[in-house]
Design a protein around this nucleic acid. Structure first.
Lengths: 262, 262
DNA sequence: CGGGACGTTGATAAGTATCAACGCCCGTGG
DNA sequence: CCACGGGCGTTGATACTTATCAACGTCCCG
């Protein structure tokens, strides 16, 4: 496995950009002290594999920066993304010995890692972490269910529109909790926003259960119809968010705001 | 909402059929005493709605017997199943106020219910329950990811074969933990098994992201090809499990045994 | 006997995949 | 400096899988 130890690694949890969203969000000062002593950083370049499906799971991690993908693959190579991991998302399952899917870096990625066993012990002893992990897992399950609806029942066009809305929403949530622009997201006025896609067309096709050609065609179609505008291949602007959400086909619930919960 | 209180409700957790798999699996005697005092049973007939998506969540529950379905629906009626709830599965999310999906009974169903708030308090105070809930949620997330692979990348024939394998596996796990036949599952010899489908063709189509006609055709095709045999519409026998698993297209991992975890 | 829920099968249509060609961008090496 | 090649993306022509529309069969219950 090829990974680089960060040269001048982030040290203080206090100033960590994902401090308030990650698995450690609810920790107290003394708990951070413990985490500080256990944690170590790893960085990966875009395209690198972080973890091969089936391999032993020696560490768990939070994504500090960048975007990673969890994927499952059939024998003949058909690939489905099953997780899109943005900053603050958690990789790994306490108690599990082998990775059930492959994790790779979509962009350059920095992880805040903990060795599995000490982390499992820590969880037993630290209800704040276990509670937060349960909460995050439940959120992820909600997201997985929305994703299943997309995969099973939406048209190609709806899938693309939904994906764009999901990315915009997740970046907005991140930016909000960091009080700072992330990945070039700007929300200058309600109903107008722009952002960079964190994925190639191929990765988008793996997310959506489509081919790369269909992804390309549907993006072109949304652009032609004025639902989105593109600068280069990656930068998307959305002149009218409601229009995009309508194209996504979701039952009216505003997907950019809180998802019908709470 | 129409539901019937069970007339001679199950009373003792000790003799509960889902005692060792449900959210209470790890509880001690004193904890059961608490649960006993809080719990109440509800029963639903096949086809009844247990919970409407968007409604306030007033209780959480374990499925004691029968099969329930969680579904999400688009504005125009397209429906995707996002959860298949067998005995011991848990319905509801602590801390959530509104149901993110509809839950309905596929067969007659009996639930062991707890009012949301007392249950949330109990979780705070009872690590055994919180731990078990985390474990079950992580298992459900694993299942959701396998399901996503199915929805996004498998052919109709593979979807049907996968579904049959999943049902067989889940019933086998249930039967094993209960040391008793469940829903007519029999495992007389390795490589030969039979079971009843808990779903109509329509519900299967909602599970698999197909139309009812495609489900029917692919079942007929698997029967014609000798992969399965049918007695009536619901009872399936599998003469050769490896053959079925091969049709399911999963990478070799034996889906009937433990799923590559632990 | 009639009607409705459920399931199967056939004919056809539609959406997406597949195969193929081409364009753009950028890094490398002659 | 320019040519080449590879990664990525777009577009077109065609094939194939699955959806749609329709008819019919079975079973059960009123």
């Amino acid at each position: 496995m090829s990974w680089a130890v960060s040269p001048s690694g982030q040290v203080s949890c206090e100033s960590c950009p994902i401090r308030h969203r990650a698995v450690c969000a609810r920790c107290e000062a003394d708990e951070f002290a413990q985490l500080e002593s256990m944690k170590f950083y790893r960085t990966y370049e875009a395209g690198q594999t972080i973890l091969f499906g089936g391999d032993p799971l020696e560490f768990v991690a939070s994504v500090v920066s960048g975007v990673a993908m969890a994927t499952r693959t059939l024998e003949d190579g058909r690939t489905q993304m099953v997780g899109l991991l943005l900053p603050s998302d958690f990789i790994g399952r306490p108690g599990r010995k082998f990775a059930p899917f492959t994790v790779s870096a979509a962009t350059d990625v920095r992880l805040c890692c903990f060795r599995s066993k000490p982390f499992a012990n820590l969880i037993e002893a630290t209800p704040h972490i276990a509670q937060r992990l349960l909460e995050m897992t439940l959120d992820e399950l909600d997201a997985a269910r929305e994703w299943m609806l997309l995969l099973g029942r939406k048209t190609a066009r709806e899938k693309i529109a939904s994906f764009l809305a999901i990315i915009a929403r997740r970046y907005a949530a991140l930016a909000q909790s960091a009080e700072v622009g992330v990945n070039g997201v700007h929300l200058p006025a309600p109903q107008k926003l722009s952002f960079d896609l964190p994925l190639t067309r191929e990765s988008m096709s793996d997310y959506l259960g489509l081919t790369i050609e269909t992804v390309s065609r549907q993006i072109s179609a949304l652009k032609r119809d004025g639902v989105i505008a593109l600068e280069g291949n990656r930068h998307v602007s959305v002149p009218n968010l409601d229009r995009l959400l309508a194209e996504a086909g979701d039952d009216s619930e505003d997907v950019l705001h809180d998802s019908a919960a709470e």
